[in-house]
Amino acid sequence: MSGIATLPDRAISVGRLRWRRFRTHRAAVASLIVLALLVLFCLAAWPLKTYLGIDPDATDLLARFDPPSAAHWLGTDDAGRDELLRLMVGGQISLLVGLLATAIGGIFGLLIGVTSGYFGGRIDAALMRFTDGMIILPLLPLLIVLGALDLTKLGFTKEFATSGAAGFWRIVVIISIVDWTSIARLVRAAALAIKERDFVRAARASGAGPFYVMRAHVLPNVATPIIVAFTLTVGRVILLESVLSFLGFGIVPPTPSWGNMLNNAQELVNTAPALAVYPGLLIFITVIAVNFVGDGLQHAFDPRSERS
């Protein structure tokens, strides 16, 4: 038929175009590399542990604040434990909390956002009131209260309440309880916009129900803003974890996390300043790299954004 303009033989896929745009964001590319190195660093705990033959949790009160040596490459901490190994293991914990809490909170926000945006009306109004209420809460004090809760009063056994696992899961859960609002709002706005698009109406006219529409149309179309929001959330969650663990309401020693390694920071500042620098520096580098990657993704996904 005459009206069809000839199409280019091979069109570039959306993914390829995005990768191209992402690559123009130099800080984001550099950050991606930094993040990869950080992950490798944290995973290096296992080989290093066997190589040096050290248990990262083993305390040695005769070797407190030892300077760097062949046995302890970064020296030892206030309990005579190997600082480098603890930084590596602590990093695993901090990153894991960041990813897990983001994922759980993200799924929660996703469900709330999709439901709110797709069904609209009363459901939407109620859910958004709830979300607004969540947003205006004083976040940190609330997290501290949640971190201080007595788990036995919630029906958990005493053994569990004082275990390391409880500390880990508690912080994952409380952060995901409070940090889902931005994703919920984002998804809601996107779902609102998408359900009015004609391709959704065409699907509904063919008999599609709400679940089909969400799975086949809404979710794939909100995927990009969600990826960006997820990335930025990971950075925020890592910060929150470090703060809570630092204040003593998060990961409980002897399990290390970058936050709780600064627990007695005031003492460290005077006796072993380097020990006060390392964990914080690692948090800082991780979070800034995550944020740059998020910015790069945003740039890659939004064709209108300009940056170089």
Partner: peptide, 18 residues
């Protein structure tokens, strides 16, 4: 739903870009 189908005005909104 099988017997009646719809075609819309805006061809840019009518097709799922994904």
């Amino acid at each position: 739903r099988r017997d009646i189908q719809m075609v819309f005005q805006d061809p840019f909104s009518a097709l799922d870009p994904r």
